[in-house]
Every structure is written in structure tokens, then in C-alpha cells.
Design a protein around this nucleic acid. Sequence first.
RNA 1: UGACCUAUGGUGUAACUGGCAACACGUCUGAUUCUGGAUCAGAAGAGUCUAGGUUCGACCCCUAGUAGGUCAACCA
Length: 567
Amino acid sequence: MSENKPASELTGESKTPTNFIHSIIEEDIRNGKNDGRVHTRFPPEPNGYLHIGHAKSICLNFGTALKYNGKCNLRFDDTNPVKEDVEYVDSIRYDVHWLGFDWEGREFYASDYFPQIYQFAENLILKGKAYVCDLSAEQIAEQKGTPTRPGQESPFRNRSVEENLDLFRRMKAGEFAEGSRVLRAKIDMTSPNMHMRDPLLYRIIHTEHHRTGNQWCIYPMYDFAHGQSDSIEGITHSICTLEFEVHRPLYDWCIRELEIFAPQQIEFARLNMTYTVMSKRKLLELVKNNFVSGWDDPRMPTISGLRRRGFTPGSLRNFSDLVGVAKRENVIDVGLLEFCVREDLNKTANRVMGVINPVKLIITNFPEGQVEEMNAVNNPEDPEAGTRKVNFTRELYIERDDFMEDPPSKFFRLAPGREVRLKYAYIIKCESVVKDPVTGEITEIHCTHDPETLSGRANSNRKVKGTLHWVSAQFALQAEIRLYDRLFLSESPEDVPEGEDYKTNLNPDSLKVIKGYVESSVAGTQALDKFQFERLGYFCTDTDSKPDHLVFNRTVALKDSWAKAKN
RNA sequence: UGACCUAUGGUGUAACUGGCAACACGUCUGAUUCUGGAUCAGAAGAGUCUAGGUUCGACCCCUAGUAGGUCAACCA
């Protein structure tokens, strides 16, 4: 549980720059609040897959606990059986764990607290602070008013405690139809805060719950379950996103009226990223309409998608640290995410040679049938990674982009009459090219090599402008390469003219599947293995990959200053 | 025509809570390199939304604006 650091070093050390939440916590500790105890929680609703925004929240909550020697629970906010499913519970547990965090057995469910929460509701009724309302959903909405106009009181608002208790118990007993009655808090229909206008506490839902089955037919609303769950678990700092800011008065009201342990809710701004959408609804839509292959499509900003794309837990944790925590709206440059994977993979991914857009290269003065084993370094950033042998033969493949017939002056690669080094092998000189007579496309590049320039030899260090990667035409393995690009063309996909929606910004070329070659050393690769294809980028073995049909996903390309120079 | 929140280089966050703005990404130079990667050295780029005020002194405090966001689901 540590691979590649951050989330504040996964230890208690405070290396991270301070954020306002940590400032609050530190002051609470100074003041001896909660006896200096720090207890957070990550509270997903199991109704979808987690995305990078959740990753930030996970890192914040678990990271905060780690930093202050506290605890962090994993709690499922499962109060709406019609939307939730165990499939999501499982994926969430897997993702949190994969990210590198451990809830140490403190896996809780709001549904575990249903009996307790039900009791809370009765207590409120007994105090005259809650009532059963028979109005329809439409009527309640109507009487709620608007943010600028006060609401009206329900005709059922002043029922007696006895009647309320009786009705509520019968709701629980299943005597009433779905939607016929609800339990509401009695607060203030004229409050400028809509959430304080007699909010719903309980509603009737005759749907089987993924954990409690048919035990209940009334379910607490978020506002009557979340804070209560926090309280029951002794959560000291209940960290959530900004849209819950307006819920805080209600959160506090419930805690106060119930006279139970009071956690402190603190809100921060959710993560937004360029070239992507982040709402569960939109992500679900992309999946449902097959714009992507599933929740774990490597183009998705989901944790499962990023994992399949080749991201490492450490890179995501580091990203979460770098984006910071604050209350202002923000849009993070997706380039920062890419920086984080590159930084991580540069240090950990073994190098391998692969040719993505092949053109044949023939070394005319290299004996036919001869095989020479070249020594290759697995990772120049990590001596421990060792070396390997790569077969060199007369016929090779190199990258089509590495050759130009009529190159500009800034082009350092192969061209007629020019010399380059083949990595780990020889310096070669281009003598001629063979073209397809009809298309004019180059089919073969003919070169000669200088045997004295074999890598590692004493006099091999002649200066050449460029070094190319290559694979042996005879030994290379064919592979399917999936080149991913951003899913959306626009930096802000939701920014669209009237009448259109974010889907018009979908990038039609976000996935290109091509055939390429990789050196034979990768033969036994397993799903999610990570490599750097030299000079190209970081790739990982896809879950679809089989020994006789290798599939690699491009996680991210290497920085390419030549591409930039070309414009 | 309400309430609440926010406002610092292109982006994201800092600034010991009053002492003339720092870090990261990005950008641009140069060095180095058997990855046009990495690494190393350096540069440009904001005077902190606006207008007042308090103060010897304000990004930090006050007032009024402006701009953006959130809130009217028997969702969370």
C-alpha cells in the first residue's frame, strides 16, 4: 500500500502545502476539540463508478486522516434503493483500495443505521419537530415557494404528536402507497434557505434494497441520513463538496435537535478538468449510448478507465495533492494529470522498442540470416531494472516519421545520404529508397551500417544528430496498438451553442486502432503491465490482450519538442 | 427580484492570519543526452475584480459595487 507516494506521502508527515481544511483541523486540535481526534469518511452513493473527482475526495479524506493520525471510514450512502446496486459497491471498494487506501475494516453503510435513524425520526416527532404530510410531491413542490418567494405551510403541519407517531409507524408498517405520505421536519417555510422549508425526512419506497432487502419500505433522505451517520460514527470533520454548503444549516439543525454528537461539515470545490466531463449523469450517458466501450473505457475519467489506460495509483495521488483544495471554482488543465503519469512512469516503466507506424529498413551490407544480440538498458532512470538482449537483423522496421526524403534543416533523423544511430546498434547511412510505383509511397529504405560503431565499442561514439528505435522484422511481435486522444475536442465540452449539448464536442478520433510491432521481450506481458515504448510514449497492456494477440493502450505520449517545432 | 459562497500570472494553489506576492504545471532560452524523453541552469509572465475606507503599512480588515457559482428532486 505505498507504490509511488503522495496523498501526502501516505504517512503522517505533512509535506503538503496547507489548505484551508487542514488549517481548520489544526486549530481544532490546538483547541482540544474532540480531544484532538480526527476522523473523516469517504461517503459515496453506490449508484455509479468513481471518477477522478472522487479520487481527489478519497485522497483528501484518507490523506487527512493519515496526516493527523486519525481514521477514515468508507461509508456507502445507500438510502435510495431504486438507484443503487452491489455492482457499484464492489467497484467502489476496489477503486479505493487500488488507489492505495485502507479503511481498516471500517466499511459502513447508511443502511446499517436505518433502525437508529428511524428512532431519530420518532424522537423528532415526539419533540413536535417533525410531522407526516399527506400532500403529493407536486403540491409540496408548489408550496415550497421559490428562492425569492417564501413557501406556504402544509395543512398537515400541525397534526398532533400522537397522530404523527401513529401515521409514521403505519408508514413503516407498509400500510401506505408509495408517494402518499412523507415525514417532514417542522422548521420554517419562509426561510431564505430552501432546504429549511420543512424538508422531507422520510419517504415511502416499495423497492428491494441491495442490503436490507424488503425489511424497510420507508427510507431516510440524504439530509436525514448523512449527518446522522457521520454522528453515529463519530466523524469529526465531514468533508464534502460545495453544493452541500446550503445543506449545512439543516445538517446542523438535525444534529442539534437530536442532541447527538456534532461533526463539522466543511465544503470544498469539486474538481473539474479540461477536455472532459465529470458528472455521473453524463458519464453514464456516454456508456449507455456506446460513445465509449464502458465505465472502464480508457478515455473515461473514471478511476477504472484511468487504471485501464495505464495510470498508476501514485500518479493519481500525486495529482490530487497538486490540484490543491479550496472553495473557488476551478478547471484543472488535463496536462497536469499527464505530467503526473509521465513523472511516475518515467521512473518506473521499463523501456522497450515498438514501432507504431512501420516502414521497412534494410541494411544492405549486413549479412542475410545473421542475428546479433544487442544489449539494451531496461530503464536508464533505474539501474536496478537491469538489461536485456534485443535481436538485430538485416531487415528492420523503423518509424515512418523518422524518415524524410526532403527534410527541413531542423530534422535530425534519417534522410537520403544522412547518418543516424539505431539505438543499441549501429550508425547507419541511408543510400536509397524504394517506392511503390503507383502510390509513390516509400516501401523500403536501404541503408548501410558501419560495423565499427556498434554500441558500447570503444570507437563507437561518432557524433550523429539522431538516434532511432527499431525492431527486427524477423523477430518483432505484431501488436494491436490503441492510440487514445482526449475524448472531447473542446477544452470545455459543456460550452455549447443553444440547442446543442456536450456530445457535439466529442472527438471522433479519440481512439485510433493500428497495427504495430514490438520487440519480442514483451511476449509474456500481463494486463496492465506498463512500458515506455522508446521515443513514443507510455503504454500499458490492455485487459483484452492475449498471448497470440497483444493489445497495448497508449497511456500518454512522451513530450515531443520536435512535434512542437514542426508547429 | 432572496440567501449563501467565491474572486491572486495562461492554469491550479501559497503568502507566518496587516510588513510591498511564492510554489507547481505550462511557455521560452541554453547546457547535456545512444529516447528531440529525462536531467541541469536560467528567463518571461500577476502587483492580488473595481471604487472607496481603516492603518505608518492591506492580497489579507470594513463598506459599496461588479463578475462567477450554488439553492426551488419523495436524488445524493
